[in-house]
């Protein structure tokens, strides 16, 4: 019968190899596909003059986060509270933070 320590050390070895394979080998294998997509994205950004990632499409100040003004999260009147879920995940844009 296999000793428990042997079985556990084999588990650690396999887990370590899987982790090393994912961290060091997988990025190399994916690089060609990724680079092809990246070039297309960069080209589109340059051609259209885009400024933001399309991650949060629910509110205009999170869709174009870098272009937001200080008041946009509060919509159009002073008592309107910021209420979009993505508003709680993002920070105001850099140019407003440094003021």
């Amino acid at each position: 019968m296999v000793r428990k320590s042997t079985a556990y050390l084999i588990f650690l070895l396999v887990a370590g190899l899987v982790m090393a394979g994912l961290i060091f080998m997988h990025p190399r294998l994916q690089m060609v596909d990724y680079e092809r997509g990246l070039v297309k994205r960069q080209h589109l950004v340059r051609e259209l003059g885009l400024t933001d990632l399309c991650l949060f499409t629910e509110a205009r100040y999170t869709r174009h986060l870098s272009q937001a003004d200080l008041h946009s999260p509060f919509q159009d009147y002073p008592m309107a509270l910021e209420h979009f879920p993505s508003g709680s995940l993002v920070l105001p844009p850099e140019h407003l933070l440094k003021r």
Binding site: R36, G37, L50, L53, C54, L55, T57, R63
Partner: peptide
């Protein structure tokens, strides 16, 4: 005209 590969910047774009 914009494929899935550019979705991160173009998913909601209408030109």
């Amino acid at each position: 005209t914009m494929g899935d590969e550019t979705d991160l910047v173009s998913a909601d774009l209408i030109l």
